[in-house]
Design a binder for these strands. Structure first.
Lengths: 229, 229
DNA sequence: AGCGATCATCTGATATAACGTATAACCTGC
DNA sequence: GCAGGTTATACGTTATATCAGATGATCGCT
């Protein structure tokens, strides 16, 4: 093969419409653009994304299979709602999974990853100061998963994403209160210190505190607006 | 609405062709009826189940979204294969998740559940004696999840099922060796004793031993047949 | 006014057809 | 006999049509 041909990159797989719809809905859920319990119809999704029913349907039911959406009676699809029992359950799962990821990641993070995490934490703080809570949510996700992916456990990452997706619709419910609290900042600072020292125990402790803190805020927010259960 | 009508459950999704196809494939995967790495085409599934492409496709890709199958290049779908790193990862996840479920279940199991578990364990032993390994696999699944469901954590149950599905194709690879080993029987006996005493620590310990035992057998089997990676 | 039945509309489920691409079997020229 | 190109087949993707069940509104009756 000629040298010139070797430099040509393989064709990027033209993402399918169903795949793009899936990603689009996924990020919309994470960004809290849907209200908890909101019904998503196949036709509405198809119309919004200007695709036909088939890929829209596939995206919706794949998200159901993934746990990011829930299916109701008669094949209807809804954004999941959370009651306190569900929050408690997801929190306990997160403690187990993210604790595992944190311990492993602390041992495997390279300097680039540590620097990325530090930078993302700064971005969170800056976005919070500017009250750009959409950016806070996005950077908070990136901050956590930049750390977790260093554990090199892709199945685990996927499961943790599933947990985050289930609570995604509530994230903008708890801002701005969440961001402004000193505790949240302190937890993230502790996480950064722990990864800088590559200390598995300290990192797991800091992550656990962050998870439990978020759970408390979320439970309080839901108690305040019980119609969202 | 009358009380009787309130108890009627709405039509569930698994009464659709896509839902039934999903269940059918799911149990087939668990039973190890597909070889690791085997390619599943939409048309083949549709023909086998005598349905059209649409529900067959939906079932396949929902299983991919669920993590029970994997998607390759050009939208092809395969039964997942495991290498040793993947086995290690899934084992560590299982230890975290099933450990959590076991601790919780030990505190919540009622007498009926304990009796069910005891009965299922007897069925495993009987099926093993008759060398009916399909029944061993099925009852082993039921035994574990009869316990886990007592934790009343449905999200957690779904995640644990995902772990089991990923290894499902390899289960009949490790029989009959797996069933015949004394250690496996001892682990299950320890599990039964722990739930009878409703002892969370003992149950978690026993479950962990069972998981680690299964992982060792599985890793050994894969080393013996490296072409299945 | 309240209640119930009828009908239009919405929505999900499925089949089928059309299209583009990948795979492999085949063929041709050397 | 074999390398390279060509055709045929298989496959995934998507759009559309059709059907059935659910939903909701309108109208008539009491």
């Amino acid at each position: 093969m000629s040298r010139a041909l070797q430099r040509i990159k393989p064709l990027e797989r033209n993402e399918t419409l169903a795949g793009r719809a899936h990603d689009e809905l996924r990020t919309a859920i994470m960004a809290g653009r849907f209200r908890p319990g909101e019904k998503l119809t196949i036709r509405a999704v198809a119309a919004a994304l200007e695709i036909s029913l088939t890929p829209a349907r596939e995206a919706l039911f794949n998200l159901v299979a993934e746990g990011a959406l829930e299916s109701g009676p008669n094949g209807s699809v809804h954004v999941p709602t959370l009651d306190e029992a569900r929050i408690t359950e997801i929190t306990r799962i997160r403690l187990a999974l993210e604790g595992l990821a944190a311990r492993e990641a602390a041992l495997l993070m390279d300097d680039a990853a540590i620097e990325d995490a530090r930078r993302l934490n700064d971005l969170i703080i800056k976005a919070d100061r500017k009250q750009d809570y959409a950016a806070v949510i996005r950077h908070n996700w990136q901050f956590h998963f930049r750390i977790y992916e260093c554990a090199r456990m892709p199945v685990l990452v996927r499961m943790m994403e599933g947990c985050w997706l289930k609570t995604g619709a509530y994230l903008n419910l708890i801002y701005p209160e969440f961001g402004r609290l000193e505790d949240g900042m302190r937890n993230h600072a502790a996480i950064v210190r722990a990864i800088e020292r590559r200390d598995p125990v300290a990192l797991e402790t800091a992550i656990r505190r962050d998870i439990e803190f978020a759970a408390r805020i979320l439970a309080k927010a839901i108690r305040a607006e019980p119609e969202l259960q």
